[in-house]
């Protein structure tokens, strides 16, 4: 029931989470256990049941179009691991 290594690596890539070579099997096994639990869902018929993304049947309230946010760049960039000239820095982005 364990999730195979290749799938674990694909998921890790999608989620951008490094998983060490030594723990891949363990992660796969545990994911497998969770999926086994989740597979119980297949035991019930749900044909015609509308999926429910929100617990309450409320609708969205829209906001008036107004600028309400002042510039707080300095406060925000104090939190940044690396920022310069008002920009957040990351390793080179290649297009």
């Amino acid at each position: 029931m364990a999730v195979d290594k290749q799938t674990v690596e694909q998921l890790a890539e999608l989620a951008r989470i490094a998983i060490s070579e030594e723990t891949v099997d363990e992660v796969g096994k545990r994911l497998g256990n969770v999926l086994q639990l989740v597979d119980q869902l297949q035991s019930v018929h749900t044909e015609g049941v509308a999926p429910m993304a929100h617990p309450l049947d409320e609708v969205q309230v829209l906001r008036p179009d107004a600028v309400t946010e002042p510039d707080q760049r300095e406060a925000f960039q104090e939190l940044a691991p690396q920022a310069e000239q008002g920009l957040y820095l990351v390793p080179k982005v290649i297009d």
């Binding site: 799938t7 890790a12 989620a15 989470i17 969770v34 999926l35 989740v38």
Partner: peptide, 18 residues
Amino acid sequence: RGEGFGEEVKRRILVGAY
């Protein structure tokens, strides 16, 4: 993300992605 998150959090993110 690999170093910043603990095991349970990583597991749930992977389950969610799956």
